[in-house]
Design a protein around this nucleic acid. Structure first.
Lengths: 327, 327
DNA sequence: GCACGGCCCGTGAACGTTCACGGGAACGTT
DNA sequence: AACGTTCCCGTGAACGTTCACGGGCCGTGC
């Protein structure tokens, strides 16, 4: 690792001072066209690249955001990340992406280093707020898809009660009376989406007794629906925790000889682009994932400056039913 | 924006010197347990976070890589990005991701700023090497999926001739004689994959005359196959530029009443995970996308240190046929 | 002839942290 | 009593850049 080329090396090579080199390379003006060219040539000749650290130290302008997600290959997080990247690019900000590989330990590890690398952090975290706080040591943070309990944090809420209600309304209107659900198997307690579904069912006076759980994968959805239908053969429709599981359910239905949506209606959650490539296209309670990412970045920006924070009601993304083909 | 809390503020609050604060916060040792705790408390009290710029200036250890891709929502790039993130995490490196939104102007814009933010850059670029060079001003760079012409750059090659040959062999063995192709419509000249296909076809003495082009989307694939089959109804198999287009082709076949693979075999390229969620699962000439990302990061690391670069033959990812259900 | 303004360039200082070094106090050893 | 060790802590310097300021030179106007 040879010695670094500094601005002084360029200055010496061009026969001028530091400041003149700085002026030439930053289009500052107050410099003769001839010497400017001479400096530029010298810089290129020596392979000079300014140190981002030295530059960042004196001008406090560049902002870098950390984006922490459990798994970039999960299409939901991909879409959120894309939204965040777009919003950041519009502001000229930089985004360092951390994939925690669905591991709590990896999450801890990244949190440890993220605090010293970015100006604010945004993302999906699984740790509780107390531990987050100790790891982040005061770093501004925006939690996505999860309520914050302490004023220490800010968060982007996902509100799906109305959307799920819409979905059940839709199924009910189509004549469905036996509707099951495939919940997420990853946590101990039932999900909030499960609660939304229960509310919508009881609102219609329907029995809410056919519920299975699926792990987070297409295969998980396939297995889960197969099991659920074995237990409850009379089901004519099923609502799933998310689109990935729904796509697995689609496959299970086909393998069981049930055509969708005639023999079995399927409604997912998230509204991923992925739902449009399968056949039949997936009906889903859709989230504006791009907006989730955008909001998170926006709020992070507010935290970074003295600008007023986004009001609570804007920090919410509402899911709406998108009817495609599967229901 | 209130004044920044510096290490001196903490030192003053704790009644010690800079250095002692530094020792306490970095677990350096040579410090009394009591004062260490006192410093930590004072730091937390004041909300002190060390400046990454000042720190980076003096210890030259943290490395940051820029990853430039045209579109994170394109599953191929998502997988490459995931591979790169994983490799970077294993090394303790940070990755700033830039999505150029499939726009050459955006690519120019990011190249302009990327040089001053990262230690090396890796990714898919559409600009020619000359322009890349002027924008990057000496920044180490690894080009993915594209040959480098000048020693200025390094690159990761994608070699698919053998894999495509495998695919055609497979189709031939299954009795297919009329095999078409859907090439990429985005560029003026035919793609290299088109050439690989042509070679494989002539090797079997088959006519290579049924070729259409598709834009980069599922819908594009659907339209393109519909058109191709209208022109060449006798086709019994089709090879596509990539999996996205293939999935569109799958849908077109179904709409035309052709069951896959019996009435029409479909073979894609890339081997995306996405190909396993559609039905029938997509047979594809598969790339190890994770390895593409990993290699790029590895080579970037070599460029950054004095370690010897990866030999040419290792900088290549070979596609192999993965037979699933569609052919 | 002199003052003044514009153009071009250089010098000290500052940004906030870590490194290298030195030094005092307490303790034990001879 | 003198000396060496260990433990703990502080001070100058350095990292590489930009900012604020000052100053020389040349041309212009009165």
């Amino acid at each position: 690792m040879s010695k670094r080329v500094t601005i002084n090396d360029v200055a010496q090579a061009a026969g001028v001072s530091r400041q003149t080199v700085s002026r030439a390379l930053n289009d500052k003006g107050e410099i003769d066209a001839g010497t400017k060219q001479r400096v530029i040539d010298a810089a290129r000749e020596l392979g000079y690249r300014p140190s981002r650290f030295a530059r960042g130290l004196v001008r406090q302008d560049t902002t870098t955001i950390g984006l922490v997600i459990p798994d970039l290959l999960n299409p939901f997080f991909t879409e959120v990340a894309a939204g965040a990247l777009e919003a950041a690019r519009a502001r000229g900000w930089h985004v360092i992406v951390y994939d925690t590989a669905d591991s709590v330990d990896t999450e801890r590890g990244t949190l440890e280093v993220v605090a010293s690398q970015v100006d604010a952090v945004v993302g999906y975290f699984s740790l509780d707020e107390a531990e987050l706080d100790t790891h982040l040591s005061g770093l501004p943070a925006v939690l996505i898809g999860r309520e914050h309990r302490t004023p220490r944090f800010s968060s982007i809420r996902i509100e799906g009660a109305a959307g799920v209600r819409e979905a059940v309304d839709h199924l009910f209107a189509k004549g469905h009376r036996r509707i099951g659900m495939l919940d997420y198997a990853g946590r101990a307690e039932p999900s909030i989406r499960r609660a939304w579904f229960a509310d919508a069912m009881t609102a219609h006076g329907l029995a809410d007794d056919a519920v299975g759980t699926a792990v987070q994968s297409v295969d998980g959805g396939t297995e889960a629906l197969t099991g659920l239908l074995a237990q409850h053969p009379s089901l004519t429709a099923v609502f799933t925790f998310n689109d990935i599981i729904a796509i697995g359910a689609l496959r299970a239905a086909r393998r069981l000889g049930r055509t969708v949506p005639d023999d079995l209606a399927v409604v997912g959650f998230d509204g991923l682009q992925l739902g449009t490539v399968v056949d039949p296209a997936l009906t889903s309670v859709a989230l504006d994932t791009r907006r989730v990412g955008t909001l998170a970045i926006e709020q992070a920006g507010r935290l970074l400056t003295d600008a007023p924070l986004l009001p609570d009601e804007e920090l919410q993304v509402n899911a709406v039913l998108v009817v495609r083909e599967s229901a």
